[in-house]
Amino acid sequence: MSVAAPARTPLQQSIGTARPDTARARRHPSAGGTVVYVILTLLAIFAVGPIVLFFFNALKSTSDYATSSLGLPRTWLWSNFATAWTQANMGAGLLNSTLIVLGTVALTCVVASLAAYAMARLEIRGSSGFMTYLLIASSLPTQMFLVPLFYMWARAGLYDSRLGLVLIYTGLFSPFATLLLRSFMIGLPREMEEAARVDGANEWRVFSQVVLPNMLPGILTIALTTALSAYNEFLFAVTMIQTSGKMPLSTTFFSFQQGFTQNYPLISAAGFIMIAPMLILFLILQRRFISGLASSGMGGM
């Protein structure tokens, strides 16, 4: 369950020159190349077109939308964003989402990096069995947990609390994050740790002063993937948070869309406001995002 090479390697290669491609392209500047580009472009339109259309719809008036839901806006109603922002109460939603996401990310990173360190470096018994358990734990139907979790959380006073949601998210996302981080750690050199141990440092010092700084890129990766999952999650959010003032954006948007507010341009505007923060974060940090998710998909767990 580990990647032989550090998760970063393939992408560093991709950034560097890929020799066979260039060689090939020079030899055959052919029609085949054009066809490939055409297909790739069509796929790109398939991927991004709906989002662009969604953005256009967010700028339409309702009558404009009713006559053409697949075209350009006739007048660009930027005020829809402001209206959606207030009507759907997205300011509070964004604040709550931020708190919940940051809380989840912080806790998950702490929990996962400690456990990953133990699993990758400290020869603990039952480690491989535990990894199998984590793999299974992250493939269980979470709807099944709703009833018992609700019961336990209400007893503990964690129901209708953002902290309660953060704890659930940490529980749900940390197995995956741990596996990811463990495989990242296995790719790191051990010499510095050994040297520190020889110098008499205890495991905590080795971890906090030697390992942690080296782990930072891996931690940033799991922080991003966890943030994405926590930000987009809605089943537990809609179940565990009752007070509208505490609801994260996924729930705010869901209820705004489900309510009888059938003003599609406003729904689109609210939806666009919801995806904007992740879109921006992704575009800024995309290399880290992609490398993390890519290694998770390559069996980096």
């Binding site: 796929l43 790109a44 991927a47 991004v48 709906p50 989002i51 969604f54 994405l228 930000y231 987009n232 809605f234 996924s250 948007f253 869901f254 869309q257 939806g271 919801m274 995806i275 992740m278 879109l279 992704f282 575009l283 995309q286 995002f289 992609i290 998710l293």
Partner: peptide, 13 residues
């Protein structure tokens, strides 16, 4: 990058 964008959009949206 373009292909990856739909993956980060929330399912409700």
């Amino acid at each position: 990058t373009l292909y990856f964008i739909p993956y980060i959009v929330a399912s409700v949206v």
